[in-house]
Amino acid sequence: MIELTNLTKRFGKKVAVDDVTLTIRPGVITGFVGPNGAGKSTTIRMILGLDRPTSGEVRIDGRPFAGCDAPLRTVGALVDSKGAQAGRSAYNHLRVLARTNGIPQSRVDEVIEIVGLTEVANQRVGSFSMGMGQRVGIAAALLGDPQTVILDEPANGLDPEGILWIRNLMKALAREGRTVFVSSHLMSEMALTADHLVIIGRGKLMVDMPMSQFIDEKAQKSVLVRSPRAGEVAELILSAGGAITRRDDGALEVTGLTAPAIGDLAGASGLHLHELSPRGSSLEDVFMAMTQDAVEFHAQSDLDAIEAHHLPRARHEGTPS
């Protein structure tokens, strides 16, 4: 269990993490998603005590990590790249780490086998590919058989087989009752992996809910409508309670109404439709839209009158301000 309370980190004037309060529970995989620069790594570094919070606090299993007397048993972490010196072998790197916490040498052999590096354990880490480097970092994270596992972008550099492997590994760790906290900048990857979703944008907590709930609520269906008399069709749709996004090519993207309902509306008024196609918006699109808003409200200037009235309501939902 990781508890963040009003966690804030400023670098000069820039607010990297802005008043985040969050509880990360054991037994499930919590996906931590945000675009690059959103504050994911800073948050993870504060959890590990590597960055000192400007204000607020972090507790792991009820205690601040800085005073922890059994750190590797409490938290295993993969932070940034491989986190090992190039000149040392993977085996010796893990031996060094094990020794700081009095973890038996036999466990070093175990984790090397778990991550599949047995064959190359005596080679210098500097000679490893990025994917092998990630496996060294994951082996280090597992070393103390920790209650909490934190992985920052673990899929980086892994091939598809490696990504599947790390996904299954995390699921196994969560099943055993551990707290698993994993960051990614890819929503689609997290949708396949995480049970619980946390989204951060521009340092602010934007979403903290079960992944299934997020998919139900946010990955809404839309209908693409084209008509030579789009303006009139748009008025009909709005009066019937739909919301509209106008695309650059003049098509209307409608949410809140089904395709048959839109077709009936247009038909009843004698308006021709050239296209009426239902589509599901991907999680990646939803995520991009949400976090773009958090970064800056740049889309506003491009919106026409219809959108200006109806978009903010739809798109800013769930955005704390």
């Binding site: 007397d69 009095g102 973890i103 778990i114 058989d145 492997w165 299954n168 590994l169 099943r175 055993e176």
Partner: peptide, 23 residues
């Protein structure tokens, strides 16, 4: 892979009781 993780970690509470950091 996941099977071996489970095999090595399911009894984790008792696994390294002496694993503490010291000077």
């Amino acid at each position: 892979m996941s099977a071996s993780v489970a095999a090595t970690t399911h009894d984790r509470v008792a696994r390294f009781p002496d694993a503490k950091v010291s000077q």
